[in-house]
Amino acid sequence: MQKAEQFPELQYRDLDQQREAAELGMWIFLTTELLLFGGLFISYAVYRHTYPEVFAEASRHLDTVIGTVNTGILIISSLGMALAVYGAQTAKRKRLLFGLIAAIVFGTAFMVLKGIEYYHHYLNAEFPGLRFDYSVPDAKGKQVFFFLYFAMTGLHAIHLTIGIVLVCIILYLAYRRRFSPDYYTPVENAVLYWHFVDIIWIFLFPLLYLIDVHK
């Protein structure tokens, strides 16, 4: 069943060393991703400091229900990915395939709900760049809030889309029986990426949706 993957590439001593290198490389890549989002998070912090009331008011225009549901959906998709790794590690093929499919389904569901939200903002003229009503009071701060909202969730959505495509590829490879407990580095790295995207959302959710909901 196993082919060339059983042998390490030329520059490695053994498969363990190769796997460790791939894992380290992936973590370093996630570091760069964190700093990439970091630029947006610090912008958010600066503007929330500049326009505290406007941000709170604008936040109420977001759909908290969809936001909360989406958070749950992403967490469940992450569970799917975690189970996929478990399946790959223990050679439980059904678990692996099922976990990956679950992640794809829930990930896509997240994107659909996100798209519905975006559409509503477009209708409400809250989409800076495409359709935005500058005549409302505090338009500047509101514009900045919605720009950040779209930049942050948009960048997150791009990452999630890449994640879904990646997982589809992994699913195909898993279906072709390319993974075994000895070799599942692509699964592992896709999982790390997916969880990272999940973590970003976990911070985006309260920062964007839950500013002063109680008022």
């Binding site: 760069t32 964190l34 700093l35 990439l36 989002f37 970091g38 630029g39 947006l40």
Partner: peptide, 8 residues
């Protein structure tokens, strides 16, 4: 650690 911030 630095380049991603330039990218964004």
């Amino acid at each position: 650690l630095g380049t991603p911030v330039l990218a964004i």
